[in-house]
Write a protein that binds this DNA or RNA. Structure first.
Lengths: 280, 280
DNA sequence: ATTTTAGTTCCATTATTTGAAACTAGGTTT
DNA sequence: AAACCTAGTTTCAAATAATGGAACTAAAAT
C-alpha cells in the first residue's frame, strides 16, 4: 500500500480500477483489494462522487471518470514538455520521416507525453499517456543514464526486469553497465529489447544544469532501418533535444515574474473551492 | 467545498492548483485557500507524494503531476466515447472538410474528448481535455436538451450565464425555451453565443434508450459558412452520431461477457496495490 | 544586527475512517 | 413456495487519521 493516509488509499483504489482497463464490478474489485468490503465500498462511493470514477448503474460497473481527462489536460499543458516541444517534434519528424517519441519519467516508468508517427500522423490521447518500462526502452535508458546515482538506484529497484525479448537486459548489473556506455556515448539504443523487430535511438533532454527533463527517440523497424541509419540521425536528434531544453528553460523565467501578479484564480476555469457556478 | 471527507478536500486542492494554469507557490495557494496553513501544507505534501502534484524544489512551486496523464489515458480509452468514435470523426471531417468536435458532459460542463480540425489536422491533448460552458455551446445545448428534466434542472443551476457575446443566452428561462426548440428540431445551433464570428451546429449522441452519451458538432467561421450550409450537413452529422451510438452500445455487451474471466490485474500496468516492481 | 516574510513542524483536540456484523434485495435451488 | 444463496449496502462503537493554533526555522529585506 502506498501509505499517505486516506488520500493515498483512495488513489490505490483508483489505480486498481484503472488497471483493469475496462468497466469492473464491485465484487471483482473486492477480490483483488486489500480493503474490507465496507471500506472499499465507501471509497468507490467517494471516488464516484468526486467523478474520478464513473458508475454505470445498469451494468453495475465502475470505470475511470472523465474528470481525470480535464485534470490531465492541465498536467499535460503545465507540467509536461509536450506543448513546448511540439514545434520541434513536428520539425524533426518532418525532416527524418520516422516515428518520434517524447517521454518523461514518472515513478520509475516511462510516460510518453507526445509522439509523431511517420505513417499515421494523428494518434491523439491514445499515445500521450501510455506508459512503458524504463529498463528496456531507448528513452527510458537515456533518461536513467543521465540521472544522479541516488535516484538511479531507487529506480533500479522499481524495475521488473521482465524479459520481453531475448535481448532484454534482465538485471540491475547489466543495466548499470549499459548506462555507463550510454553516458559515454551520449545516446541510447533499444536493440529489440522491448519488441522484436523494433529498434530505436534515444537521447535525454537535459537542462543547462544537467537535470533530466525528458527523453526523445527515433524508432524504426529492423526491416526498414538499421543502426547505421539511426546513427546518421543523431545530430538531428541531439539538436532537437537541445532546442526543447532551451525552450523549456526560457519558459520558466517569465513564469516566475508573473508569479507576483496574484492568482489568476478559480473563476477562469470554473474551479472555485466553492464551485457551483461554472462556465465563465 | 465539495464535501466528501478528506479525499474531497484533497481534490479541491488539486483543482485549485490546476486552475492556476501555471506553477504556483505555497503562499499564493494559501491566500486563495479555505484551509489553514498547516492543513494546506499537508495536503500539498500528500498530493505530491502521490505524484498528483509535482513540486519544483528550485522554484518552490507546485504544478499538476504527470501521473494524471496516465490515469487520464485510462479514462479516455475506457470511459470516453473517443476511441469508439474515432473512425466516424475521421470519416465525417474528411467528407465535410470542417472542424468537428466530440464532447461529453462532466459536472455541468462541456468536456471535449476529441476533435478533427479542418485546417491543422493534429491538435493532440490540447483539445481532448478542454472544457467549455454548457449553456452557450452547440454541443452543450444539444446534450442538455435531450436530458431528463431533473438532471437538466440541476445543471441549470450550475451555469454561470456569463455573456461571452451579445448573443449569449443569459438566464435559465431563455435557455429552457431554446432547449425546447432544440428537441423539436433535433439539433442545436451556436449562433456566435460563445465566440463572435464562430457558429456551429450540433446533435446529441443518444443511446437506443434515449440516454445522452455525448454531443457532436460542426463548427465554422461566419466569414466562410452560414446556417444554410450547416443545415445541409445535418444528415451527415446525424448519421455520424447514430453510428457512434450504435458502436458504443455494441461495445458494452462483449465487455459484460468478458467480466467473468477474472481480473486482468494489476501486473499488466504495474499498478498492484503493493506496487514496487513495475514494467511488465 | 534586526525585522519581516515564507515555509515547516508539533501535538493535544476533534472528526473521520474503519470493518465486523447485520441487513436487504435479486436470483437460484430444493 | 420456502429456503438458500450471492452481491451489494448500511450500522455503529472502536481505532485512526486529520486538524489547526502556535511555536519554530530559514532566508530575505531593512
Amino acid at each position: 500500500m502506498s501509505g499517505d493516509g486516506t488520500v493515498g488509499k483512495a488513489m490505490d483504489v483508483l489505480d486498481q480500477v484503472a488497471s483493469f482497463g475496462r468497466p469492473v464490478r464491485f465484487g471483482t474489485l473486492l477480490e483483488a483489494s486489500p480493503f474490507p468490503k465496507a471500506t472499499l465500498y465507501r471509497f468507490l462511493q467517494t471516488l464516484t462522487n468526486q467523478r474520478l470514477l464513473a458508475y454505470d448503474a445498469d451494468a453495475q460497473t465502475y470505470s475511470v471518470g472523465v474528470r481525470l481527462v480535464r485534470l490531465a489536460h492541465a498536467a499535460w499543458s503545465q507540467t509536461s514538455l509536450a506543448p513546448i516541444a511540439r514545434p520541434h517534434l513536428d520539425a524533426l519528424s518532418h525532416k527524418i520521416g520516422l516515428t518520434v517519441h517524447l517521454a518523461q519519467l514518472d515513478h520509475g516508468q516511462v510516460l510518453y507525453v507526445d509522439k509523431r508517427n511517420a505513417a499515421h500522423p494523428v494518434e491523439m490521447f491514445s499515445d500521450a499517456g501510455k506508459i512503458g518500462p524504463a529498463y528496456c526502452t531507448g528513452v527510458g535508458k537515456a533518461m536513467l543514464a543521465h540521472m544522479p546515482q541516488a535516484e538511479q538506484k531507487r529506480i533500479f529497484d522499481q524495475q521488473s526486469y521482465h524479459a520481453f525479448t531475448p535481448q532484454t537486459l534482465t538485471d540491475a548489473d547489466q543495466l548499470a553497465a549499459e548506462l555507463r556506455n550510454i553516458v559515454a556515448r551520449g545516446h541510447a539504443y533499444d536493440r529489440e529489447e522491448h519488441e522484436p523487430g523494433i529498434i530505436c535511438i534515444a537521447v535525454p533532454v537535459l537542462s543547462s544544469r544537467g537535470r533530466v527533463l525528458g527523453g526523445l527517440s527515433i524508432t524504426g523497424a529492423t526491416r526498414d532501418t538499421d543502426y547505421n541509419k539511426l546513427d546518421a540521425l543523431v545530430p538531428d536528434l541531439r539538436a532537437a533535444a537541445a532546442a526543447i531544453a532551451a525552450d523549456a528553460e526560457a519558459w520558466r523565467f517569465p513564469m516566475h515574474l508573473a508569479e507576483s501578479s496574484g492568482h489568476v484564480s478559480a473563476e477562469q476555469s470554473g474551479q472555485t473551492p466553492e464551485n457551483h457556478k461554472i462556465g465563465a
